[in-house]
Design a protein around this nucleic acid. Structure first.
Length: 211
DNA sequence: TGCCAGGCCCTCTTTAGGGCCTT
């Protein structure tokens, strides 16, 4: 991990995978990656590609994502897409909703092509669970509704979910600023919040100082 | 054909179990 390299840039890549299933250790593969780069809170770049996992996907995944086997037939293979995505990530830190899931697939797919990334990963789900403890649930779609964030597309496509995660992320940073007066929330502080027990988060943010 | 995972987090906990999230 090398988050210190990125501290000055305040550049993040927020990403989302669609996959053949839940576990790369059980043979599941990525079928789509969507990602958005934000620099100082502004979207500066996007990445979206389908990828061919080399096998047919299940009817459940076709229904869940709207990605069909026909759509994947002409897609580039995973190793080509993931190489381009590794280039896209660059030195940036990474965010995903339920990051443990996306990190498993990112690590597994990059390991297959002997690539890696230097940045650190954090999770919008863990942050939301701490900031919005009264929310009815902490699914991405549920949080979008809870915060009255506009959405006019289909969840469970990679770029759309990444875009929604960006909107949620920026709202969470705004709420931290509004509630605790922290105008530029360092990535390192977010990491600390996501590892802090829920009952202690208010104290952590209330007492935090950049110095 | 049928089935599959794993990290987080709460509690009726810690020698455990189960719900929440992700596809």
């Amino acid at each position: 991990m090398n988050s210190s390299l990125n501290a000055m840039a305040d550049s993040l890549v927020i990403l989302d995978f669609e996959t053949t299933g839940l576990s790369p250790t059980q043979g599941d593969r990525a079928i789509e990656i969507g990602a958005v780069r934000i620099v100082n809170g502004q979207i500066t770049d996007r990445f979206q590609e389908l990828m061919n996992p080399g096998r047919r996907i299940s009817g459940f995944i076709e229904d869940y994502t709207g990605i069909s086997n026909d759509m994947l037939t002409d897609a580039a293979p995973c190793h080509e897409v993931m190489a381009r995505f590794a280039d896209f990530i660059g030195q940036d830190n990474l965010v995903a909703h339920n990051a443990s899931f996306d990190k498993r697939f990112l690590d597994a797919e990059l390991a297959l092509i002997n690539r890696d990334y230097p940045g650190d990963f954090t999770c919008s789900l863990l942050l939301a669970r701490r900031l919005y403890q009264q929310a009815p649930n902490h699914k991405l779609g549920g949080l979008i509704s809870y915060k009255n964030i506009a959405s006019d597309g289909a969840f469970h496509r990679a770029l759309f979910d990444a875009e929604m995660t960006v909107k949620l992320w920026l709202v969470m940073l705004d709420d931290i600023n509004a509630d605790y007066g922290i105008s530029k929330v360092p990535f390192s502080l977010i990491k600390k919040v996501t590892k802090t027990p829920k009952k202690s988060v208010n104290d952590l943010l209330s007492n935090w100082s950049p110095l």
